[in-house]
Every structure is written in C-alpha cells, then in structure tokens.
Design a binder for these strands. Structure first.
Lengths: 210, 210
DNA sequence: CCGTACGGAGAACAGTTGTTGACTGCATGG
DNA sequence: CCATGCAGTCAACAACTGTTCTCCGTACGG
C-alpha cells in the first residue's frame, strides 16, 4: 500500500498537520463556524487553493480535529479509571489526569468544550460519538467494582455519564480561570466524592435498582 | 424620564426585538462569532446601517440575548427549587421545569448552551454571570433544608453547581434528541436522585464537612 | 406650531470570502 | 530513465462583509 518512508506522503501530512495546528490556534478566539478557509491557509503559510488537497471544507477539518483531540485519549482514560484502590485514590488520579491534560493541550480542550455544543453539526456529532465511547469505557470500569453489584446496565451508564460530564465541565473551568486551578480542582474532587457516596448508598433505597 | 405610551420608543423597541428575534433564529444553525451584521438586518427587514441605532456590534446584541434568555428565568428557578415536600417531589418539579422550558423556548436554550463555551468572550462572561446567580439561588434554597445542617458554605455551593450543570446538560440533550425526551428525563431524574443520596450521607464520612 | 432630535434608508468604501481553472515542479513506479 | 500523478501556486471571479457619511420623514418638547 504505502512505502515506509514516502517522501511524498511525509510532506503531505506535514502541511496537513500545519493546517490543523493553524486552525487550532485560530480557534482560541472564535468558533469553528466562523473560521475561514483563507484564514487557515494564511496562518499555515500555504496558498488557499492547496487547502482542498487535504480537506473538502473547514467542517471536514473540524471533524479531523476532533479525532486528533479525543482519539488519543482513550488509553489514558482506561488506565486512570481502572486504578485499584479506594475511591479517594481514584479521584486524585482523575483530577490529576484532567489538570495535566488541560495544561498540556489547552487548545485541544478548548476546541472540544467549545464545539461540543457548537454551530457545526458534523463536528458536534463526532464529539458526541467520542464522548459516548468514553462513557462506555468508564461504565465498564465502574461495573467491575464490587459496589456495582445489583446495578442495572442503564444505571451504570447514567453514573458514568455523570462522571464524564463532570470531568468536561471541570476541564472547561480550568481553562477559563487558570489562576484558580486549586479551588476548581478541590471543588471537582468534592463533587466526585459526593457522587461516590451517592453511588455507595444507591441500593439502600427501596426502588434504587428499579 | 420616558412617557408612558411613547410612540417613538415603542417603534424602536419593536425593531430592536425584531433584530433579537432574527438573530436568535439565525443562530440555530451557526455560532454567534460567525453571525454577520448584514445577515441579521436582512432577516429583520431593515437596512444594515439601522443596526447601529440599537447595538454597537453583534457582540453587543449577543449580550442582550443573554439577558433575554436567562434574565426572566430567576423567579421560575426560585419557586421550583423552593418546593416543599420530599426529594422526589422536587426532582419531578425540576424535570418538568426543564422539559417545559426547552419546549417553550428552544432557541433560547440552544443559544445559551452553545455560547456558554462559545468564541465571544463578553457573551461567555454574561452567561457565566447569570449562571452564577442561579447557582447562588439554588444554594440558598438548599441551605434552608434540614439535611444541610453542618454544611460549609463552599460545600453547599459545590452541590448547587452540580445541580445547575446537570440541568443545563439535560436541557442540551433534550434539544438534540427531541424524540428521546422520555429516556433523557428519566436518566436526569436518576442522576438527581443519586446526587440527593450522596447529599444525605455526606456528613457520614469522617472528613465530610472538612 | 415650529425646530429639533432621532430612527431609518441609501450609496459608496476597501477588504475579505469560497471556488474555479490552468499551470509548475518533483517524487514515484514501471 | 522516462512518463505519470499529485502537492502546491497563481490569477481571477462574483459575492459578501463592516463601517462611514449623507440624507429623509416624523414624533417629540417647548
């Protein structure tokens, strides 16, 4: 199929990456639906027409950005959430994961939180799909715990959704108020703890598992 | 100051409202940062230059939209969250409030959830401000419950934030999958129930109120 | 009842946008 | 080694953008 070095394809993916990087940087101050094709190519240092060699439209580039921002996150999620130990240990790991990721890839995080409810349908759907995968992975890990005995599949998923949404919300707060990261992560930890307590007592209620 | 009838001011606010309505409709398919001034005036049926008689820029109009979308919501929140009765009663009321509001003002809800993390700073800040007020109001109501005895102010706020975020997330899900409103509201109810359980057992932990 | 202030229309401006077609140079594969 | 394919450039296009300045009609306040 493709030769290993491929001087040709290497150059192509290089400028493709330049387009993605330029777009991501421009998106720090605006939404994808207002991002112009020429704007991106100008920032990437290539001619406007060359854009079409890589993407059909800016929407298309947006979908590729979703893959770049979220695709490589699955292994990290898995290893973090499947940590053994008490709840506090897991919470600390999760918070560290979020803070570290926001710190390492702020533009990616901003892009995802912004376009999750943004004005470009295909991008929204791509993000929603990836988050659905995350939710399923978290649910799988949660189901393996002893506390989840007797839980319905749907309830484990609703719990996982709670966690995933909380993590995204926390990431967004960390982005906006970078100077308050201590307070934000402390609140997030307490919210996770409270959810964990609710989880532990879920089946105490008469219709808890209904 | 202003005469009661004011044929002049009435006409002005009429076209001002036409601008807001037109913008809101156009925003169903795009983000605010890509909304053009001419686009809005065209949809509102007035000349582009007349726009400046009402707003200094599209950003400005966006901030006004935040006020329109969220400003009138405070009394509803207050009366809903201060319902007396057991937790289930309150949860049902809250879900009804959300579903009813999304059904009655879908464009407003879409605007808020989209621009909450959108690309226009002043609008983001206006939304954040309003949501902060909501959180404070919910916190006040929660603090009045017997279960909140011994809670720190900060913890009541973190609980309120959890509820507010959950309500917004639910509203957004209701918007996207209008056909699944039953499933979505059932999951949301269970999430609120779980949070309520965590709340009830919060002080069971040795360092719960720390 | 009249002068004025104000909401709105119109024309014009320099820029920018997405997309097209034809062209160039070079790595590739036979 | 040569012909092909493909990344990238350039020029041009009609359409659109935000903003300014000038003008018009009319409700308003004295």
């Amino acid at each position: 199929m493709s030769h290993l070095p491929g001087v040709r394809q290497a150059r192509k993916q290089k400028t493709r990456q330049a387009l993605l990087d330029a777009a991501l940087e421009l998106l720090e101050g605006q939404s994808l639906s207002s991002l112009g094709l020429r704007e991106v190519t100008r920032a990437a240092g290539i001619a406007p027409t060359a854009f079409y060699r890589h993407f059909r439209s800016v929407e298309d580039l947006g979908v590729a950005l979703v893959e770049e921002a979220l695709g490589s996150l699955h292994p990290m999620i898995r290893t973090t959430v499947s940590t053994i130990g008490d709840g506090e240990e897991r919470i600390a790991r999760a918070i560290d994961l979020i803070v570290g990721h926001v710190d390492a890839y702020p533009a990616h995080v901003r892009f995802v939180t912004r376009e999750r409810h943004g004005g470009v349908r295909p991008v929204r759907e791509a993000i929603h799909g990836q988050l659905g995968l995350f939710t399923a992975e978290v649910a799988e890990a949660l189901a393996a715990d002893a506390v989840s005995a007797g839980w319905s599949r749907e309830d484990v998923l609703m719990l996982a959704q709670l966690y995933v949404d909380l993590m995204l919300g926390t990431a967004s707060l960390l982005l906006e108020g970078a100077r308050e990261w201590e307070r934000v992560s402390r609140v997030a930890a307490r919210q996770m703890r409270l959810i964990g307590i609710g989880r532990a007592h879920w089946l105490d209620q008469p219709d808890g598992g209904g």
